[in-house]
Design a protein around this nucleic acid. Sequence first.
DNA 1: TACGTTCTTCACATGAGCGG
DNA 2: CCGCTCATGTGAAGAACGTA
Length: 271
Amino acid sequence: MHWHKCETQKNTMQPKEGDCMLTSTFIHLPRVGEKTERRWWKMGINSWRNWLKAYDMGWFAKFQLRSKWRKLIERSIAELENGNASFFAELLPRQEYWRCYREFKGRTVFLDIETTGRSPWDYITVVGIYDGHRYTPFVHNHNLNKCIEALHDKAIIVTFYGSAFDLPFLRRSFPNIYFPPIHIDLCYLLKRLGYKGDLKAIERQLGIRRDKEIVGLSVMDAVQLWMRYKHGNDVNALRLLIKYNRADVVNLKPLMDFAYHEMARRVRGVS
DNA sequence: TACGTTCTTCACATGAGCGG
DNA sequence: CCGCTCATGTGAAGAACGTA
């Protein structure tokens, strides 16, 4: 019962703030759900390697599934090392994809699109992609289809309401587009944390600021900007539209960071 | 071994809400 | 306003665990 103290410095047994959620995740094992996972955490089993140690000490001797679990945990360690996000995408329930965020942060993209509207005949005007360091706009009739390459080899894609809007729209425009295996839709993640409303409303609630130039810009204004560029050759309108899109995309990152920590806190229980 | 309990999983229906 | 998803709730089934 004291082996866990060798592994971690403190006697707090549950995964701590700052721990990586994915490597302390067990709900991707068969017949392991929220309850079982939490029970293991309480016993001090707060990482895959910890679990294997417990296994070697005969901790799970009475469980029929122990060898299946062991294989999957060893596999999890290997697949994470190989950066195989699909492995986790297949085994984790969708609403738990957020757990992968920290481990795959280096291969995460934030995405938001602008269109001429929401009807079937409307089309994409701008795809904005932010990789955590650099923002890149892809513009209709310029470099729009290059956005496909920007997604190549990424592990996680983060959007706001993208599962209902951005991704279906993109797939309609580019039937062969590749999407990273793990899609985190902040709209639903934040709603579980009690934050609902559109992106701008949530930004305000969390104190995320926008540039003066675009702070008053509404969605309809964004559609208008494209029209001013397309039919009036107004390059400044396009510039402003891109600036608007940039704000949308870049702000997804602090929101994701926030949601990750809040979800981690919640899932560990109030301790 | 036998039986009761706990937990996960699946299916289905309902309702909600945000995207331009 | 429409379309598209996801969350939530309920219930049932069954696997696995605990207990005696």
